[in-house]
Nucleic acid binder design. Structure first.
Ligand code: SF4
Ligand code: SF4
Lengths: 134, 134
DNA sequence: CTCAAAAGGACTTTTTATGTCTTTTTAGGG
DNA sequence: CCCTAAAAAGACATAAAAAGTCCTTTTGAG
């Protein structure tokens, strides 16, 4: 259970690679895709999602490509994962507001809240800078 | 991401209910299913899985049903979840032996190992006894 | 022998994951 | 202004997993 999808794995590989390049250098999607071994059309979709929420900045047309949307130490693994996979939700009932009718009396509920909190804590402390360097 | 499937949720509800009953009382699957609001045929499959690995003990024929396979404080939430959902695997590369060719040089890899370890730690410390009582 | 209950296996349906393809927009350079 | 490069957008296509149903078989008590 709890398995990251390929989309998530590809997303991480792609943006970590981008973070490993000189910060001011615009990278072609096709180059990134080749470097991290991901189908280019699929990676394109992923980077479109990144672009919408500002994780990367895109330039169109000749000489276009991608750069990070902010410094690598200001983007966490949690940002990246949640961008493409949605929020970290170990169980439906941890979604704010939308909880099952049992949640008040349920002893399992707090366990999932705890899992969510711990996982978010771990992923939120790792930045692209950490991942791109050694 | 990391969402428990319905099967997992149903599994927990079912076995927690069983743990809340007197330990020596054989419970009908149909009663459990009704009590926790799960399709009986689906819950049957789940309890068959439990039975195979000894989480519950089953009795067939007239007067048959299910009881826990061992005391409620010796069954953890991790046991239950892994029984029906398989091992806790945040990413493919954390499976022992089966790792991607990048794993040695990959900085993300240890993060997933950490996530796996934390989640297993949390779920492994919660027993059915904890969940069945208050 | 009969009835009750779980076990097993074959199916079906729905949803999610994993892509591809085509067209459109944007931008730079001659 | 035109041509070309590159990302954005949207419509598909295919495959796999999730979620459940149905039918038959085994087992056991009375
Ligand atoms: S029964 Fe408990 S753990 Fe399950 S969805 Fe409801 S509140 Fe959450
Ligand atoms: S690239 Fe790193 S995180 Fe991704 S599967 Fe390989 S070892 Fe794991």
């Amino acid at each position: 259970m709890m398995e990251l999808t390929r989309k998530g794995e590809y997303a991480i590989r792609g943006i970590v690679y981008l973070a490993s390049r000189p910060a001011d250098q615009v990278c072609l999607l096709s180059d990134i895709a080749a470097a991290v071994d991901v189908p280019p059309t699929f990676l394109a979709k992923i980077f479109q999602q990144f672009s919408k929420i500002g994780l990367v900045k895109s330039y169109r047309g000749t000489g276009g490509g991608f750069i990070l949307g902010r410094p690598a130490d200001k983007i966490t693994l949690l940002d990246v994962v949640e961008a493409v996979e949605g929020p970290i939700i170990p169980n439906r009932c941890v979604v704010n507001g939308i909880d099952c009718d049992r949640s008040t009396a349920c002893n399992v509920h707090p366990v999932w809240m705890n899992v969510q909190s711990q996982v978010r804590g771990i992923l939120g402390k790792v930045t692209l800078k950490d991942l791109a360097e050694g």
